[in-house]
Design a protein around this nucleic acid. Sequence first.
DNA 1: AAGGCGGGGAG
DNA 2: CTCCCAGCCTT
Length: 350
Amino acid sequence: MVFSNRLTQWYLQRKRDLPWRKTKDPYRIWLSEIMLQQTRIEQGLPYYNKFTQAYPTVFDLAKAPLEEVLKLWQGLGYYSRARNLHETANFVANDLGGHFPDNYKGLKALKGVGDYTASAIASICYNEPVAVVDGNVYRVLSRIFEISTPINSTAGIKEFKALAQELLDHKDPSTFNQAIMEFGALHCKPQNPLCDTCPFNDMCLALKNDRIKNLPVKLKKARVRKRYFNYLVFDLKDEKTILEKREGKGIWNGLYQFPLIETEGLLEEEELLNHQEFQNMLDSSLFELELHNENPVVHKLSHQHLYTRFWKIYTHEVAEEAIPLKKVTDYPVPVLIENFLNEYLPDDYK
DNA sequence: AAGGCGGGGAG
DNA sequence: CTCCCAGCCTT
């Protein structure tokens, strides 16, 4: 039996019941694909439901404030996705009359839509024969065909795309693409793949040569960077505090946080008091400083470890930009801040 | 070609 | 701990 038929047969029996599989509406397919970039389905699913409920059409999403979109996105990570999502929604709503491009090339030109996402939308919504290559596809193909080219090298990206395109069922690219990804996610898993019951176990070269555990090959990335964050939690006596918006290219762009003093290492109270940035923020000496957590919270990103301490500052000098403590949960914040708020704020403030 | 960008789950 | 997830963008 040809490759695509084996795969499809497996898929029709084993596929999960997922909301975006009940529609071909390009808006909803696009939304689901953006959310699922580098994101497990179990993690993205509740966000998909929230978004489709809050924004049933691309027009609803387009006219929503970016801040509101970021708040709904809070916790899903890779926040540039939310910013691009909002920008593309506006482009589609305002410049394309609400109609998404109906082919790979047009889709690929959208902000936040790369080769994978354009292929997924084009094949699922418009039956265009373009193969998707995501993490699942790399794994499945590298094993069955025993390909050792690193999947994150230029050569590997090209090689796997060409192979996927060759195997693609041109009569039903939508089913084929979803099937190979689902197969990778549920059957040809990273650890402990189910080779015994695999529909390809008679032809899988990695299985035959006992190389399942070595494939796919991936080039190592740089080690994680350690950073030391000191957050200043202001003005608690007046039920007001200060939040600042993160701008620029670093982490959490567009999200809010307490005023931050970043240092080279862990800070003692004396060192913080003498720190130039700290003194610039507090022109008065009428305040009390209290360390909230002696042991730093270690917030782990895939590329950075943030050793974080929260310092409470009691003062009656309420700054101009201060906001009521009850309002802080209206702002989109990183999970690091969200966790602090959940521990710190009274229940009726949330 | 390489690095940056989140958060969570599995083993 | 390590690895990976329905990747994309910038430099």
